[in-house]
């Protein structure tokens, strides 16, 4: 009944989340500067909400590896993003990251003006998804060889945040802002080119989220093999051939939205010690497994 009228779309919620996350890092410097409201500070490299500090795992790990110095607040700050990545996978990339917001906004503008349609869109330059690992390891190695962290130039969430902060507080933009433009231009060639192949933070989160709980499940009984999911996946994953189980999947729910037969659904993989013996107990929550009705 309600399915007819208004199907639940993850896309809308995701854009809402992305906008809220972008607004947070846009409003925070204004609040800090003009209203001296310092409860929330920073952006997605290091976010301080009161006494709760969140440090981006890539930056924290790189700083730790290069300076070989363990600083406890930094480690504790990395805990929350790491736990989120372990359980939910790369959700930061698709639901929070400010560069993702810019990508989505660009897509919406393209849809309005140029009649852009993700189903018919063809990516021009397609590489192997494993390039992501090369980028991650290469980034770490290069910074360790040089002795200077290079995430400053290659981690887009930090770049966007820094540009916003500089723009608001100092009324100037740093030169590295052109990297954001390059990333957005690459998006016009291949959807999410940077996120797919080059983002070291995405690589790290993908690595952490290999055994994530939240996954998109493909029910092969319902699947008609139309291949729309593969076309709309922003990462170009072969969803109908198990791409959503790969570490690269960032749980954006785009394929779930587009699937015409409802074969794709988010599901929460319970840990093995809570798994009931019978296969079909869809609504049994964790805790007591309810022997029989």
């Amino acid at each position: 009944m309600s399915e007819r009228k208004k199907r639940f779309r993850y896309r809308r919620w995701r854009y809402f989340f992305l906008s809220a996350a972008f607004l947070l890092i846009l409003v925070t410097p204004i609040l800090n500067l003009y209203f001296h409201f310092t409860f929330v500070q920073g952006w997605y490299q290091s976010l301080g909400i009161g006494r709760l500090w969140i440090v981006s795992p890539l930056e924290g790990l790189e700083s730790l590896l290069i300076s070989k110095y363990i600083y406890l607040p930094s480690l504790i700050g990395m805990l929350i993003p790491v736990i989120v990545a372990l359980y939910l996978g790369r959700v930061f990339c698709s639901w929070v990251c400010p560069i993702s917001f810019l990508h989505e906004t660009l897509d919406r503008i393209r849809r309005r003006i140029f009649r852009y349609n993700p189903v018919t869109w063809k990516d021009r330059l397609v590489l192997s998804l494993r390039v992501l690992w090369v980028a991650l390891i290469g980034e770490f190695l290069l910074s360790m060889i040089l002795g200077f962290p290079i995430f400053v130039f290659v981690s887009p969430p930090g770049l966007v945040g820094r540009e916003l902060m500089l723009g608001i507080i100092f009324h100037t933009f740093a030169l590295e802002g052109f990297i954001i433009l390059v990333i957005l231009l690459l998006h016009l060639v291949t959807r999410r080119f940077y996120c797919r192949y080059l983002c070291p933070l995405g690589g790290l989160l993908a690595f952490l989220g290999q055994k994530r709980r939240l996954k998109v499940r493909l029910k092969s009984k319902k699947c008609s093999g139309c291949g729309i999911c593969e076309k709309v996946c922003p990462l170009g994953l072969p969803v109908n051939r198990g791409g959503s189980y790969s570490p690269y999947c960032w749980n954006c729910g785009e394929c779930v939205d587009y699937c015409p037969t409802g074969a794709l659904k988010f599901y929460w993989k319970r840990p093995y010690y809570l798994k009931p013996t019978s296969e079909e107990t869809p609504k049994a929550r964790s805790g007591n497994p309810l022997p029989d009705e």
Binding site: N32, S46, E59, Y69, P149, F151, G158, M165, I169
Partner: peptide, 15 residues
């Protein structure tokens, strides 16, 4: 060590 340990979050500038 400064450049290697600093994560460039800019919170000092913001505060």
């Amino acid at each position: 060590f400064f450049a290697s340990r600093c994560i460039r979050c800019g919170r000092c500038a913001e505060s």
